[in-house]
Write a protein that binds this DNA or RNA. Structure first.
Lengths: 204, 204
DNA sequence: GGTACCATGTAACGTGTTACATGATTCT
DNA sequence: AGAATCATGTAACACGTTACATGGTACC
């Protein structure tokens, strides 16, 4: 049917808040859904053809010219209709998790480094987010009907989740350090699966 | 170069833990990276051609036959090398967040419904996860070097994050309900964020 | 009689990333 | 001198989803 996709609605949402160039759009969208410029520019063209957006060209001195896109009435209606439908399930892809899955074959040092690096990344994220949150709080327009409300609570959400993941990482580090979890085990285990006997695992 | 991708490593990780059919694989992988069967079967073929896997055909009565795949030595080495490299950044895509972004144009009722539905989903996830965690804890093979360790901590991670997101949802519901709370209160809450006391503060 | 589970596979399509292209200005 | 920021665009490729195909068993 060649209908608009989630990225399209994300763009409508951002432009509903305020008119933007494609370049700016990519930055604003980063909170909700990271997107490359190579995906955004063709999408903007497509959406303009569908009368969901319009643009004006803005000449700049010392910088390249840009196109400022605004949402149309039709765009607003389309967005509103979409907002009322219940969202589809989230997608999370994370190489870190795949590595964690195989942590048992990784040796203590490498495991701890993996988790420690994650903690460092999370800490960076946390400082970045508190800066963003502080910025939003300073411009004092955070009522539930303010156009900044969504961004504000989204930053808060990310902050909370990053913090919780950090706590989890520290819990994991503890488990690895005091490998006290494995006391009752360490024997011979033969587990069945399907009709086959899994390889016999011997640990000490 | 036609080298293996993240999905391939996820498969190696799962098969490193124990031999599986493609069908089972899809289920085990769900913790770390959801995958459709239409993607898994061609990938298994490709990986077998690269000598990372081998399979044996298992005839079943009352059920379709299946192929049990196992990891080869070459597969293990490939996996180990990959595990040592630092993981690339996670990808999260979530329509819910895009809708939240535009919450300011949504009206109180619809906003609250959106968040309330999210809470319901999270609660389902939480009960599912606690069941899974309980299962793993019962078979008592959770030492850091047990093949279940990775799965165990991954379930815990998901649980923690889902719980934290639920808390966030409730915080948002409060903000919407008492929409009189303006700037000063929000500021206080954010400062207290580090100590997770904000809910107390929010009730004016 | 309908749905769910087991089990594997291919084809067409939609989405996302990397690389190619261009080019001035400002900061370190 | 080199990197980063601003600014837009296309082409080739990699990745992921939906739909098409098949078919028995178990449960409600």
């Amino acid at each position: 049917m060649n209908t608009i996709n989630t990225l399209g609605y994300a763009i409508l949402g951002a432009l509903g808040r305020k008119p933007c160039s494609g370049y700016e759009l990519a930055q604003y969208l980063e909170v909700v859904r990271p997107v490359k410029h190579s995906q955004i520019y063709p999408m903007l063209t497509k959406m303009e053809q569908k009368d969901l957006l319009v643009h004006v060209r803005v000449d700049q001195t010392g910088k390249p010219d840009k196109k400022i896109f605004s949402i149309t009435e039709k765009g607003k209606e389309t967005l509103q209709k979409w907002l009322a439908k219940s969202p589809s399930d989230p997608i999370n892809r994370d190489e870190f998790l795949i590595k964690i899955y195989s942590i048992w074959m990784m040796g203590e040092e490498n495991s701890m480094e993996l988790v420690q690096d994650r903690i460092s990344n999370l800490e960076e994220t946390l400082t970045y987010l508190s800066k963003k949150i502080a910025e939003l709080e300073q411009n004092k327009e955070l009522g539930t009907m303010s156009k900044n409300f969504g961004r504000y609570i989204l930053f808060n959400r990310k902050f909370r989740l990053a913090k919780e993941e950090k706590t989890w990482c520290q819990w994991v580090l503890n488990l690895i350090k005091n490998k006290n979890l494995n006391i009752p085990i360490l024997c011979v285990s033969a587990r069945m699966f399907g009709n086959l006997v899994e390889e016999v695992v011997l640990v000490i």
